[in-house]
């Protein structure tokens, strides 16, 4: 009897000692991370909203400055001057830590919108960067549609 319990206790101790903390490098979502040269965190824009396209299996976060937030917040009269917004889009992947969730996988694109001029003369400049290295795209096809799409988003409710 004593041998059984000693056996059980020591076996249990072995199980516990086998556990090792995961390597921190593996705990970073590398493929979804932004390249070092694209300093999103230094823009200090806040999250305006997030959305998912089930058709494309992508998920996006729209960031913006105060002016962009106001322009997309339904309760505030909108003005485009000073607007600066950044839309980041990822391919979705299954969450390795939770069955039942999808999280950002490969980084697909970053799109930026910046207002130039003031008042009625405000124009929105659009730029698209694609791929893991966020290469600047010279092609301007579809930009009006993208500006319209981004500026038609509604700010998420965040009390």
């Amino acid at each position: 009897m004593k041998r059984i319990s000693t056996f059980i206790i020591s076996a249990f101790a072995i199980f516990i000692s086998c556990k090792q903390a995961s390597n921190p490098d593996q705990l970073i979502n590398q493929k979804a991370s932004l390249p070092d040269h694209f300093k999103l965190s230094e823009l200090h824009q806040k999250v305006i909203t997030s959305f998912i396209s089930k058709k494309d299996s992508t998920m996006s976060i729209l960031y913006g400055n105060h002016e962009a937030y106001n322009a997309l917040d339904s309760n505030v009269p909108s003005s485009l001057s000073g607007v600066s917004a950044t839309l980041v889009t990822w391919r979705q992947q299954d969450d390795p830590h939770w069955f039942g969730a999808r999280i950002p996988g490969d980084l697909l694109a970053v799109e930026t919108i910046k207002a130039a001029g003031t008042g009625k003369n405000t124009v929105l400049n659009y730029q698209r960067y694609t791929g893991k290295q966020l290469v600047k795209l010279a092609d301007t096809t579809g930009r009006a549609g993208r500006i319209k799409f981004i500026m038609s988003q509604q700010a998420s409710i965040l009390p």
């Binding site: 979502n29 965190s41 998920m59 039942g100 999280i103 950002p104 998420s156 965040l158």
Partner: peptide, 20 residues
């Protein structure tokens, strides 16, 4: 927290929510 940086987002199809 509303002005903090984002470190991930999650599409929870188990309980029909989305998270930042």
């Amino acid at each position: 927290y509303k002005s903090w940086q984002v470190i991930s987002t999650s599409d929870r199809f188990d309980n029909e929510t989305m998270r930042v």
